[in-house]
Nucleic acid binder design. Structure first.
Lengths: 339, 339
DNA sequence: TTGAAAGCGCTAACAT
DNA sequence: ATGTTAGCGCTTTCAA
């Protein structure tokens, strides 16, 4: 019944079974019209009869591009990125492309490795959240004409499409909100400055401070690595200052977890001792007590937009590098409400 | 300087540049000894000179297997799975394999689609967390001789390796813990019963109830889809019962978020009104107030073990299907401590 | 409209 | 030890 077939059926098997040539089978399968209905049906019948699946490697070898889009994200445990993936997936599927992910882990070496794999596997295009804003690593794709769209962050020196949010404005709004709630010493746990995201959130924070006439006390800024442990360490540093913050902006969700941890360990109450605003509207934000005020990003839309742009490039469209900036928004919840 | 090269260099280019044959280049690149040092150096020089990268499609076509392992997970937003991926990645890299992920989204159709892609792309092996314990969908891999290891859940009818945890025991322990804390009506938000995970956590819960002489009140069991919304709905259902639970076991982390949400909306206090134990030691577990008692799983180790098993199969080893069961453990925190 | 044939870039079997 | 050759399975001219 079930044959122990380790030798997959090829297009020639199908051709033989349908009594046509391999070329005709290929034409049918690729939706080229100019095939007689009669033959088309015989082919389709043979395909399902034999359970034929085209060999992706052979097809890629021939067409020089797999029907696959790669997404290289910088941290798979970060819910922001995983949410983005959803949006990109849906769009890609509509266009007949599949998506594979790779986790670069905020590590330039791994990122580079995955980009090389994307090149070697001849993926049609790549969505990337670069670990650093430096350009170097995407050359391997550019050299092969594989289009890239960056998300969340952009590459300062490379003319590639990007989809980001207005981080500066959002951080500014969030900081202003904390000030309006009566915080007089607003601190920030910033992300790595060599990511555009980290840098512009910090800049937005500073802008708000200046606008409110606060002076920028270096003791109120600490840097983390966008990960939980980094957030914890940064918060500890801020809280141990002789004159600790009474309001805190944390630059991403993972660091927020670490930061909240440190605040709890210090025995501080939120928001009375310290008001907190986080980035990324993680699913657990509302499960916290008090619920967390956050800057939310349109993650699904970011993914969709990135996939759109990429698919247009993939299909050969050319246009000047596009920098799409979507809108991040403050959601006020109890963790920052002091009045 | 930078040439606008859309035509990647091939092995023949390298061969020509090094003054050797393509075969020799191949031998050098694949670490076959039996190549004179002299030639080897010339080849290596030419490779880096030309920036040559082998074409993965061509190699896969020829060798009938890509140096790529696939991981098809059932929900990319679930931190349990993303943590597992880390373990698998590290192991795979050591062995020279790359890992690509796909998100099946607890959807049998998507899962099937990705398995077909894995087959079409001739991945060397696949790690899968099946959406259902039914077998059907992996045939496409088995037919091509591509080994599969399941994680978190196993396939009831397929003889494939699996790496799971002792869910039954863990759920039993967790339930017993709630009972020992004075809960007299312990409820459960169970996962889908057609996943082995969902089924055995429910069974463990019931076993603990029986052991304690509690009767199994159907009003204390609600089912969710392993996702946030499902957890929310299930909790609402339980809490609206005329005689609601005073202790609750929730079968995974995403549903826990929804459940906590519903509990908060109902104005109930944890643990005094209702004690809560969740599954999966998500990073935010300790950021909650009160911190969440959880059943933690050795996620990294699960990933490592699965990759180990898979790599052994990939390299041709044969052995009877192995079912590795690792140990899940209760971590007692304040959310369940009533005495 | 269809078939035949060439060839994508690589590896492996066969010569030498 | 190295070069030569023959495909892997597919798509795409080119003829007919």
């Amino acid at each position: 019944m079930e044959d122990d077939n380790k030798v997959p059926t090829t297009i020639r098997d199908v051709a033989a079974a349908a009594g046509v040539s391999a070329g005709t089978v290929s034409r049918v399968l690729n939706g080229k019209r100019d095939v007689a209905d009669e033959l088309r049906h015989r082919v389709l019948a043979a395909v399902s009869e034999l359970g034929y699946r085209p060999n992706g490697a052979a097809r890629s070898l021939r067409t020089r591009a797999a029907m696959v889009l790669g997404i290289v994200i910088s941290d798979i445990t970060n819910s922001f990125f995983t949410a983005v993936v959803r949006g990109a997936e849906d769009r890609a599927q509509e266009a007949g492309y599949s998506i594979v992910l790779a986790n670069a882990d905020e590590d330039l070496g791994k990122e580079n490795r995955y980009l090389e794999i994307a090149a070697a596997e001849q993926m049609a295009g790549v969505i990337l959240s670069p670990a650093s804003s430096r350009k170097t690593t995407i050359d391997v794709l550019a050299d092969r004409g594989i289009p890239v769209v960056t998300i969340d962050r952009h590459l300062t020196n490379a003319p590639v499409d990007s989809v980001t949010v207005n981080n500066h404005q959002a951080a500014r709004d969030a900081t202003a909100h904390l000030i309006s709630q009566g915080c007089t010493r607003v601190g920030i746990i910033a992300g790595p400055v060599d990511t555009t995201t980290g840098a512009s959130r910090l800049a937005g924070y500073r802008a708000a401070l200046r606008a409110a006439g606060h002076d920028d006390d270096p003791a109120l800024t600490a840097f983390g690595n966008f990960r939980t442990d980094g957030g914890h360490a940064a918060a500890e540093q801020l809280l141990s200052s002789p004159c600790p913050p009474d309001g805190l902006l944390i630059s991403n969700d993972l660091m927020t977890i670490g930061g909240l941890q440190a605040i709890a360990e210090a025995g501080l109450a939120i928001p009375s001792d310290i008001a907190v605003v986080g980035f990324d509207n993680a699913s657990w934000s509302t499960a916290l007590r008090p619920p967390l005020t956050v800057v939310t990003q349109p993650t699904y839309e970011i993914g969709q937009t990135a996939a759109d742009l990429l698919l247009r490039r993939v299909s050969g469209e050319t246009f000047p590098p596009r920098r799409v900036v979507l809108r991040a928004q403050l959601i006020e919840r109890a963790s920052s409400m002091r009045i």
